[in-house]
Simulated scan of single mutants.
Amino acid sequence: MQDPLATLSLGSRRRFLVELVLVVAVFGGLLAMMTIDQAIGSGPGPKIFVLVRMAALLLLCTWLLHRGGERWADVGLRRPARWWSVPLLLVAGTSAFLVIALTIYPVLGALGIEPPRVDHTALRGDLIEYLYWAGPVSWGTAAFGEELLLRGFILDRIIKVIGSSRLPAVLVSIVLQAAVFGSLHVHQGLGGVIVTGTIGVLFGLMWLLGGRNLWACIVLHGLINSISHYEAYSLPSS
């Protein structure tokens, strides 16, 4: 069976490359303006900025998809072909995430690499602050927004730039989008890049095993972020 992407013209692949570079550059530039750590505990302006920048990125990608005759459903935001695949992937993905969490930090320590620099102490004991970051941010910008951008738009564009939908090319694309995901967390240090990049590979594999569908990734991403914020909120006072 012929690979449908093998027929993509050089001009089309160049357009996909330009779109890929544009979205990654804008994404990186907006993240560099303010990290999540800087926004937590700040006033309403930074909090609104975190939501607005994700909305702007999604609007940009929506426009790029529309001008190419595509929709978000074409890059994974659609009803799963088999409803039971989502809870099954969530169980498998959660198990894999726990294995990663239990093994990667000792490995980083053995290599002399500092763990991710994450400071969410401003959430400690502040219920309103916690609810904001565990709700609209964890599920809106992180779970829904980042999955649409990374495992949806960016991964799709990498596959199309490579010009093959065959498994080896898709696996390479998953690793490349994970590298982008990790690099977007460079403010957390090398440890943060490695940890988030590894999680990016996990989400990419979940997307692939789920029939190139985003919903299992979205739910697991939201759960991970919400639990992380709850841990910071429930820390005992020093």
Rank of each mutant, 00 (worst) to 15 (best):
M1L: 14
A6R: 13
S9L: 08
S12Q: 15
V18T: 14
L22V: 15
L22T: 15
V23Y: 00
V24D: 06
V26S: 06
G28T: 05
L30D: 05
L31H: 09
I36N: 10
I40W: 00
I40K: 07
G41M: 10
S42T: 11
K47L: 10
I48E: 03
M54D: 02
M54A: 08
A55G: 08
L60M: 10
T62Y: 01
T62E: 10
W63F: 12
W63L: 08
H66C: 00
R67H: 05
W72N: 02
V75Y: 00
V75T: 12
L77V: 09
L77C: 08
R79A: 14
P80H: 09
A81E: 13
A81F: 01
L90Y: 08
G93S: 07
F97D: 09
V99C: 11
Y105W: 11
E114D: 15
D119P: 08
T121L: 10
R124T: 14
G125W: 04
I128M: 14
Y130L: 15
W133Y: 13
W133G: 11
W139V: 11
A142W: 03
A143H: 06
E146R: 03
L148T: 02
I154Q: 10
K160V: 05
V161K: 00
I162Q: 04
S164V: 04
V172Y: 07
I174E: 03
Q177A: 14
A178Y: 08
F181V: 11
G182Q: 04
S183L: 15
V186A: 15
H187N: 14
Q188K: 07
G192S: 05
V195E: 06
T198R: 03
G200S: 08
V201K: 10
L202S: 07
G204M: 12
G210H: 06
I218D: 05
V219Y: 00
L220G: 12
I224Y: 11
N225A: 06
N225M: 04
S228P: 05
L235E: 15
P236E: 13
